[in-house]
Structures are given as C-alpha cells and as structure tokens.
Design a protein around this nucleic acid. Structure first.
Length: 426
RNA sequence: GUGGCCGUAGCUCAGUUGGCUAGAGCGCCGGGUUGUGGUCCCGGAGGUCGGGGGUUCGAAACCCCUCGGUCACCCCA
C-alpha cells in the first residue's frame, strides 16, 4: 500500500474523492443557493496575501503567531497562505472600496500548520459570509439566520447556537483590565503558561480547559456587566431578532473565539455529533474596527466561517443520507468491434437529452458490461445489439426488477423520460 | 509544539513463546452463460508485512530512528 516510492499527500492534508465528494457538492450548492437568496455575492480572493494582512488580524492569536504557512516569493515578497477567511475579504474591501452595504460569501481553503487530528487539518475548507458597512443588529440576526437555516437545510439537526457580545471598544478596555487584574491576583500559582496567556490577552484564558484554573475562571468578571448602554441595547436587539425567528440561543459569556478582532456580537455553532475537542462547526462575529486597521475608512462588519470537513463529519455521524448524484442510464455495447461509433453516438445523444449516462470502455465482454452496469448504480441499462439494430431499436432493462423490453430508437428518450417521471412521482 | 495508542493485499483483519513458499473475508479481473447484471460455482491477479537501521542461525513479530494515521493537550472550522 503505502510504499516509500509512491507519492503521498503531505501530513495533515487529505483528498476528497467520490463518493464522499458528492456530499461536498451538495453542501456547497446548498450554501451558494442560500447565500444568493440573502443577497450575498461570491467573493473569490487569493489563497495568499502579504503576511502583514494576517498579522493585523491578531498578533497574539495562535493561528497567526505560530500556525501560519509563510513564504518568500522570487521577488522577495513576504507572503502567507490564508489561515482564515475574514482578513482577505476585508483587505479586498479596503482595496476596492465597494459601496456599502457589501455582502459577500465565499468557499475557500484555509491553511494552518498544526497537529492534525480528525476534524482538524492543515488545509481545511470554509464556507462563509461577510457583511461590511452595516452597523445594525438586524444584520447580525440575518447573518446568524443564514447559517442556522443552512445547517437545517443540509440536515445538521443537532447544532446549538452559543451567543455572546464582546462589547465595543469603550466597554472592552475596562473589562480586559478587570479580567487581567483578577487573573493575576488569583492565579499567581498557576505557572508561567497562565501568566503568559493573561498578559497576551486575558480573554484567551476564559475558554481554557485546564481543570485547575476553572475556579478562578468561574469567579472572573463577566463581560455583560461591562457592556455600555449602546452595546447592551444592540445585544438585546440581536437576541430579540433571533427569538422572533424561532432560533434558539444559549448565552455564553465565556465565548471569546479565536481572533482578537471581534467586537460586539460573537457566536458559535456546536454539533453534539462531534467530539468535544472539535465540536465547533461554524462561528463568527462582528469586527467593527478591522477595516480601519487595514487602512480603510471606519467600516463595521460581521461574518462567519463554517468548516466543511466538520459539517461532513457531523452529517456522517448523524447518518444523514447523502444525495450523491449518480448515473441514470448505462449503455451496453452488444455490437463489439464491428459496431463502429454507434454506441458512442447513442451515449452522447442521451446525454444531450439531459440524462446522466455512462458506458464501459476497452471492448469488454457483454457480461462484464452488464456487471459494470449493475455496479454503476444506474436504474436502467440500454443495450445496443445486432438484432435490435436491424429493427432500429434497443433493448432497455430495469436493473432493479430485471424486466426487459425492446424500444424503438426514436421512442427511447420518451421511454426514459416517462420512466423517470414515474419513479420521481412516487 | 508535548504526550498516549496504532501501521500485514484496494478495504476490514488473522498470523499461537521470533522458525516452512505470509493467510481469510469482501472487492477487483476472467470463465461457467457463442448477447444479459445483482445469487451460485471455478479460476486468477494483487503484499520487498509503512520505510531505514540494529539484535539473532532465523524478524511481520524484539530494540532504535523515521514517515504516516489516530486520540488528548494547546488552539481551532
């Protein structure tokens, strides 16, 4: 199997191939359709940017500080593979200055150099949206509703939504100060790792899993107590909007998420079908200062990213059926080498008429072709044989029931169409 | 980056305290059916036992290194 002289994918990355990729097609198509219905256009941004773009997203986050794939190109430019989706989109916004509101969606790979395990890879794909230029809680609700409905549509039934507000700049500064003070006062026995995290960003400690820290974390100041009247009002408006839409929410004052740029609303969807260590299937929040930090005009923004690999894992764990698009018709060549292009012509004609059609290649025996027809998953086999050809007809066989009949060549499309409608009508 | 577990045909695995040409099921290919699959029968292909080094008369098995997977931590989708 894995011999040394065979090329293999690098550590931590993987191929997505049929039939599994059928689920990916379904997921992306569902998301694209939904995003369009909400008025979001597709944004395709480069897979790499100047490293500074990502550094601005958060010097102190692990994703940027130690997990980035950095490279220098032949022109001496310092570049980095995109570790997350928002930075590139915001960079595109400040570069092109579209008229706000600017609502875009994307499907794109992210790259992070980290130890791989199930549900966590060095390249992973995210679906996401970003909405820039709107400072209105109603768009927070819209963005969350878009994602929530997407999970519902693709059958991810067991997700729960965690919601928090990181507050605006005015309310965040005193909170961070109070938090740092609290942790340094009560956690001095926890060692340098603890202290380093507190000093880099005390909020990073809030969602830590270290058992010994939990008491001190539990008694820490809570962000909602520090929210300004304006931030509180917006947060309440978001909750009311979600409630009106029937979207259940769990408030989680410790939800801080991985990036430093968040302000105001933050949220995360977790799936009970996934192991606790990687149970987040999607998350995001508001980032009202980011465009400005990128050199653009002050522009509020909100968005989310959702990991396709984790969506797939969760759907698999739930046993959700995958609607992998298969073949409808398999054409068996009963003419052999004397048949010329007859069979190829029929296959192309059926495809032109909108049927999903496959055939065997390489002059295989008729028996082998029937076997291939069976394995293809096609509902119907069409055989082009010498006897039928003399009558300008073909043999059609229902592969499930085994019933076979002869149909004239001119009536074949009508026969297949009628059968398809009969089946889908049930 | 730290630690635990794992690595035998395409897949799932067996291989008794180190000892014959390394096996099974499924899958694949061919035949039984000079033009009919899914059942059945017969046959075949496919493995330097992840790779390298060491111990030994002898290693799939024991030791070291390495690559990969997996799980936990860190962190995150």
């Amino acid at each position: 199997m894995s011999r040394d002289d065979v090329f293999r994918a690098p550590k931590g990355v993987h191929d997505v191939l049929p039939p599994e990729s059928g689920r990916w097609v379904e997921i992306v198509a569902c998301f694209a359709e939904r995003a369009a219905r909400y008025g979001y256009g597709l944004a395709i941004t480069p897979m790499f940017e100047h490293v500074e773009v990502f550094h601005r997203v958060g010097e102190h986050t692990d994703v940027v500080a130690k997990e980035m794939y950095e490279l220098t190109d032949k022109g001496g430019r310092r570049l980095a593979l995109r570790p997350e989706g928002t930075a590139s989109v915001v960079r595109a916004y400040v570069e092109h200055r579209p008229t706000p509101p600017w609502k875009v969606w994307y499907v794109a790979p992210n790259f992070r150099y980290e130890r791989a395990q199930k549900g966590r890879y060095r390249q992973h794909w995210q679906l996401g949206v970003e909405a820039l230029g709107v400072d209105d809680p109603d768009i927070d609700v819209e963005v969350i509703a878009l994602l929530s409905g997407f999970y519902r549509d693709i059958g991810l039934s067991d997700v729960r939504l965690l919601l928090n507000s990181m507050g605006d700049a005015e309310s965040r500064a005193p909170f961070v100060a109070a938090l740092r003070d609290h942790f340094l006062r009560h956690g001095d026995a926890f060692g340098e790792d603890f202290v380093a995290r507190v000093e880099a960003n005390p909020m990073r400690v809030l969602d830590a899993k270290v058992e010994a820290w939990q008491d001190v974390i539990g008694s820490a100041p809570q962000l909602p107590e520090f929210l300004s009247p304006d931030a509180t009002a917006k947060f309440e408006r978001v909750q009311a909007g979600l409630s009106d839409l029937g979207i259940d929410v769990e408030l989680d004052p410790r939800l801080v998420r991985g990036f430093d740029y968040y302000t105001g609303t933050t949220f995360e969807f977790q799936s009970a079908a996934l192991d606790a260590a990687q149970n987040a299937v999607g998350g995001g929040g508001r980032y009202d200062r980011l465009a400005e930090e990128f050199g653009g005009p002050p522009t509020p923004g909100i968005g989310f990213g959702s990991g396709i690999e984790r969506i797939v894992l969760a759907l698999d764990a739930l046993g959700a059926p995958s609607a992998a698009a298969g073949i409808e018709v398999f054409v068996v060549d009963g003419l052999g080498p004397d048949g010329g292009t007859t069979v190829g012509g029929l296959v192309e004609a059926l495809r032109a008429d909108g049927f999903a059609v496959d055939r065997a290649f390489g002059g295989r025996s008729v028996k082998a072709q029937w076997k291939a027809a069976d394995r293809s998953g096609a509902a119907v086999a069409v055989m082009v044989g010498r006897d039928e050809l003399d009558r300008d007809a073909v043999a059609v066989k229902d592969l499930a029931s085994g019933e076979q009949e002869e149909v004239s060549r001119t009536a074949l499309v009508a026969w297949l169409t009628a059968r398809r409608e009969r089946v889908s009508g049930r």
